[in-house]
């Protein structure tokens, strides 16, 4: 009988996650605003506005780096999975940190004039034809808008309302936001920085994110060979008990094949919740369990056990000469397909 703890045991895990994330932000801001000033050079005591702008701006950038590193880290080592579980909370906090940075910049650079500060934000620099002097604020506006949009749509209501595919596509905008933040810093703060440290930190962070994604992408399954109308998924023995493998057809979604109690079952690799990679999950309590948020599905029909209602597309399987073959044509979500017994 599958555990329905998904309904009732999320509280503690979320509290620990949120407290850890808040501690991360708290330590950064506390050290930046209250500890470091005592050690600044006497000719460079940072004023309150600039300190707030720099502290929250750099903190938001580092948090974004952490957020974008979690996905590939989990793919490379599943022990990082707890960091992914409530990643959306970290995203909402990052949006709040970025809002504080934006507010400080508006208060300092664009206020105290006879005109509205938002009008000045857009009119202050319109030198679009220049690289050195380009209105880098626009990159910040774009990134902040994306962060707010993603924070506002982070709740599962929006996931259901928009459908997981649209929601995930929308949330991929975070990569564009990150690139935009790098451009915001490179064309703004770095142009005036006398010390190279910020440039080194930004470069190291961007390189880390890119490298992790490159390594993680190498672990994706190669396109499976076609045997008549079937796809070759490799030898039966390659699938460990209660584990899955991922098969990528030439067209269409990847397929996850699981082995449990001497039988094989196949479902789409995309979790119905957030399109998480089911094939990297496990069979727990007789159910396929998503590695991202623990959503569970029955092996035989891809349906979440009651009281849940999510359904996955299922696939037909057969075993020929010790090799697993899968029919790449997906059945409608929730279609019963009797698992194949391993001889």
């Amino acid at each position: 009988m599958p555990d329905i703890g998904r309904l009732r045991k999320r509280g503690n895990q979320e509290i620990v996650y949120d407290l850890t994330a808040l501690a991360l932000i708290g330590v950064y801001i506390w050290v930046f605003l209250w500890i470091a000033p005592a050690f600044q050079h006497v000719t460079r005591p940072l004023d309150a506005y600039s300190a707030r702008m720099n502290a929250f701006g750099t903190c938001a950038f580092l948090l974004l780096t952490v957020i974008l590193s979690i996905g590939p880290l989990v793919r490379l080592d599943p022990r990082f999975a707890p960091l992914l579980y409530n990643r959306r909370h970290l995203g909402v906090m990052t949006a709040a940190v970025a809002a504080t940075h934006a507010d400080a910049a508006l208060d300092w650079y664009f206020s105290f004039s006879p005109y509205d500060r938002f009008e000045m934000l857009l009119r202050g620099n319109t030198s679009f034809q220049q690289v050195h002097g380009f209105p880098f604020e626009l990159f910040g506006i774009f990134a902040f808008s994306v962060l707010v949009l993603l924070a506002a749509t982070s709740h599962d209501f929006w996931l259901r309302f928009l459908t997981p595919r649209v929601w995930k596509t929308l949330h991929m905008l975070l990569y564009a936001a990150y690139a935009s933040v790098v451009a915001h810093i490179a064309l703004g703060a770095l142009q005036a920085a006398a010390n190279p440290l910020l440039a080194i930190v930004v470069l190291a962070c961007a390189t880390t994110v890119a490298t992790l994604h490159i390594f993680a992408s190498r672990r994706r399954a190669e396109t499976a060979a076609i045997v008549g109308a079937w796809l070759d998924a490799g030898p039966v023995d390659a699938i460990a008990e209660d584990h899955g493998i991922v098969v990528t057809p030439p067209k269409g979604e990847a397929i996850a094949i699981f082995r449990h109690a001497g039988r094989l079952s196949a479902v789409t690799n995309l979790c119905a919740h957030q399109n998480g990679p089911l094939g990297e999950g496990r069979v727990v309590d007789g159910c396929i369990t998503c590695p991202w948020h623990g959503y569970q599905y029955r092996l035989e029909d891809g349906c979440a056990p009651p009281p849940f209602t999510e359904k996955l597309a299922t696939y037909r399987l057969r075993i020929a000469e010790g090799r697993v073959q899968v029919d790449p044509v997906a059945n409608p979500p929730g279609t019963l397909v009797e698992p194949v017994t391993i001889p």
Binding site: Y28, I35, A36, R44, L62, A194
Partner: peptide, 21 residues
Amino acid sequence: LLTCFGALAFALAVVSDDPGG
């Protein structure tokens, strides 16, 4: 991670250029 964030906050704050108050 907490140590890294604290150290980066310290280093970045100490080398920040101050445009004035």
